[in-house]
C-alpha cells in the first residue's frame, strides 16, 4: 500500500466518471422520453377512469413516481454523504451535490401533484398528517443540504457539514414510507407494492410502471450531467477538464488524471505515511 496507488480508487476519479457519463447520458434522454410517451399514452388513452376518483386519479401517474424519486434520491444523497465523510472521496461529494437539486424538485413536485390530487379527492389541498408532513420535511432536508453546502467558503468543510445533515436526515425516509401503516392517516395505503398484487387495473399498473421508469431514467441523466458540470468546475486547471471542455478527452489524459486522483485520495496509513 505504501507509495502505490490503490487500483479501485481510479474509478473514483472525476475524469473517469466524466468519460463514463459522457457515453451513458446520450442514451438516457431518449430512453426517458420513450418511457414517458408510452406511459402518458397508457395513462391517458388506455387506462379507464377510476370508479371512485374519476379522471382525477390520473394525477397519480406522476405523483407516485415523483414521490418515490424524492425518497430514493434522498437515500442516495445520504449514502454518498457517508462515503464522503468516511473516505473523503471527492467524487462522492460531487454526486451528492448533483443529486440534491433534482431530489428537491421531485419532492416539490410530489407535494404539488399530491395537493392537486387531494383537493378533489379529500376535499383539501393539505393536511398536517404524518406522510405529508414528513414529505415536507424531506423537501427542507434537500434545501438544507444545498444551503449548508453553499454556505461555507471552504468547500471541504461545507461538504462535510452538509453530508452530516444528509445522514442524520435519512431517518425521515422510512418515516415517510411507513407512515401510512404506522399512523392513522388521510393518505391512502399502499396500492402497488402489495403482497397480494396491485389493487389496480393492469393498464393502470402498466402506465404507472412506465412513468416510474421514465422518472428514474430522467433523474439518472440529469444527475449525471450535473455531476459532470460540477466535476469540470472543481478541477478547472487540470489537463483533463480543459480537454473535456472542448470535447477531446483522450484515454491517456483520462488515465493520467485517474492515477493522480488515486494517489491524491490515498488514505493515510496508521503511521501517517501516504
Amino acid at each position: 500500500m505504501k507509495g502505490r496507488s490503490i487500483p479501485w480508487l481510479k474509478f473514483t476519479a472525476p475524469a473517469s466518471f466524466y468519460a463514463l457519463a459522457q457515453r451513458l447520458v446520450p442514451w438516457l434522454w431518449p430512453a426517458a422520453a420513450l418511457c414517458a410517451i408510452a406511459g402518458l399514452y397508457m395513462g391517458f388513452f388506455v387506462a379507464p377512469p377510476d370508479h371512485q376518483q374519476g379522471d382525477a386519479y390520473r394525477i397519480l401517474f406522476i405523483h407516485v413516481p415523483t414521490a418515490w424519486m424524492g425518497m430514493l434520491l434522498y437515500l442516495l444523497l445520504a449514502v454518498y454523504g457517508a462515503i464522503f465523510l468516511v473516505w473523503r472521496i471527492k467524487m462522492a461529494d460531487i454526486m451528492a451535490r448533483a443529486i440534491a437539486p433534482t431530489g428537491a424538485l421531485m419532492t416539490f413536485l410530489s407535494l404539488w401533484t399530491g395537493a392537486l390530487w387531494g383537493a378533489p379527492t379529500w376535499g383539501t389541498f393539505w393536511v398536517w398528517d404524518a406522510r405529508l408532513t414528513s414529505t415536507l420535511i424531506l423537501l427542507f432536508l434537500f434545501l438544507g443540504y444545498m444551503a449548508l453546502h453553499a454556505a461555507s467558503d471552504d468547500r471541504e468543510k461545507g461538504g462535510r457539514a452538509a453530508s452530516l445533515l444528509a445522514i442524520v436526515g435519512a431517518v425521515n425516509v422510512p418515516i415517510i414510507y411507513f407512515s401510512v401503516e404506522w399512523w392513522y392517516n388521510l393518505h391512502q395505503g399502499v396500492s402497488v407494492m402489495r403482497s397480494d398484487g396491485p389493487s389496480m387495473a393492469d393498464s393502470m399498473v402498466a402506465a404507472l410502471l412506465l412513468m416510474i421508469a421514465a422518472f428514474w431514467i430522467y433523474a439518472g441523466a440529469v444527475v449525471l450531467r450535473r455531476a459532470q458540470v460540477e466535476a469540470l468546475s472543481r478541477e478547472p486547471r487540470t489537463e483533463w477538464a480543459q480537454a473535456a471542455a472542448v470535447g477531446r478527452l483522450t484515454r491517456d489524459q483520462r488515465q493520467r488524471a485517474a492515477a493522480d486522483t488515486a494517489l491524491d485520495q490515498q488514505p493515510l496509513g496508521p503511521e501517517g505515511e501516504a
Partner: peptide, 10 residues
C-alpha cells in the same frame, strides 16, 4: 371528467 384544473395543473 370535470377535473381539468387539477389534472392539468399537476
Amino acid at each position: 371528467g370535470g377535473y381539468a384544473p387539477y389534472v392539468w395543473g399537476a
